[in-house]
Amino acid sequence: TTVEVQGVEYRFDNPEEAEKFAKKMAKSLNLRVELHGNKWRVE
């Protein structure tokens, strides 16, 4: 599972970890998070 934060990609073996990371990043950067296939995008 991939998390893309403002163009930078982070890879996770565990989808739940990816989701937690994406939501945490979105909250700290005041952005929103969307799931596209198996990629979380924070923008």
Rank of each mutant, 00 (worst) to 15 (best):
G37Y: 04
W40I: 05
V8R: 10
L31H: 04
R32Y: 09
W40P: 02
A26E: 03
L35V: 07
F21K: 00
A26R: 01
N30D: 08
R32Q: 12
K24F: 15
V3C: 12
K24Y: 15
K39W: 04
A26W: 02
G7W: 03
M25C: 15
V3W: 01
H36W: 10
W40R: 01
K39T: 14
K20L: 13
N38S: 09
T2Y: 14
E17F: 05
D13R: 07
N30E: 06
R41T: 13
W40G: 02
E17A: 10
Y10I: 05
G37Q: 08
V5T: 03
N14C: 14
G37R: 04
E19P: 00
G37H: 06
L35E: 04
R32K: 13
E16D: 13
P15M: 08
N38Q: 08
R41M: 14
Y10L: 04
L31G: 15
D13A: 09
E34V: 13
E43Y: 15
Y10M: 03
K27V: 15
H36S: 10
E4S: 12
E17W: 05
E43A: 11
N14A: 08
P15E: 09
P15I: 05
K23H: 13
Y10W: 08
E19N: 03
G37N: 10
E19H: 06
V33G: 03
A26T: 01
S28C: 15
V5R: 01
G7K: 04
Q6F: 13
K39P: 01
T2F: 14
Q6N: 10
D13P: 08
V8Y: 08
K39R: 13
T1R: 08
K23M: 10
H36D: 12
N14Y: 09
T2R: 07
V42D: 04
R11H: 14
V5A: 04
V5N: 02
E34N: 09
R32V: 12
Q6S: 08
E17M: 08
G37I: 04
V3E: 00
E43G: 15
P15F: 10
V33H: 05
N38W: 04
E4L: 13
K20W: 08
L35W: 13
N38Y: 05
V5E: 01
E16F: 12
R11M: 12
K20S: 11
D13I: 08
M25F: 04
H36L: 12
W40K: 02
R11W: 14
V3Y: 01
V8W: 06
E17V: 08
A18M: 00
A22F: 01
T2M: 12
E17R: 06
K39V: 15
R41A: 07
T1D: 07
E9M: 11
E43V: 14
V3R: 00
K39F: 07
A18N: 00
A18C: 06
A26F: 02
V8N: 06
N38A: 06
W40T: 02
F12S: 00
A18E: 00
A22V: 03
F21N: 01
F21C: 14
L29M: 07
N30Q: 07
A22Q: 00
H36R: 12
R11N: 12
E4D: 11
A18D: 00
T2E: 07
L29R: 04
E34K: 10
V8H: 09
R32L: 10
T1E: 05
V42S: 03
V5G: 01
K24C: 15
E17D: 12
N14R: 09
F21V: 02
E16S: 11
E9H: 07
E16I: 11
E9R: 06
Q6D: 08
M25T: 09
R11S: 10
K39C: 14
E4R: 06
R32D: 07
E19Q: 06
E43D: 13
G7L: 03
F12R: 00
V33D: 02
E9V: 13
M25L: 10
G7M: 04
N30P: 01
L31N: 03
F12D: 00
G37W: 03
D13W: 08
A22Y: 01
V33Y: 14
K20F: 09
K23W: 11
K20A: 13
P15S: 09
F12M: 02
A22W: 02
K24L: 14
R41P: 02
E17Y: 05
E34H: 12
G7F: 04
Y10C: 08
V33N: 02
E19I: 06
N14I: 09
K24E: 15
Y10G: 00
A26S: 04
K23R: 13
T1K: 06
R41Y: 15
G37C: 15
G37T: 03
V8I: 13
F12H: 01
E43F: 15
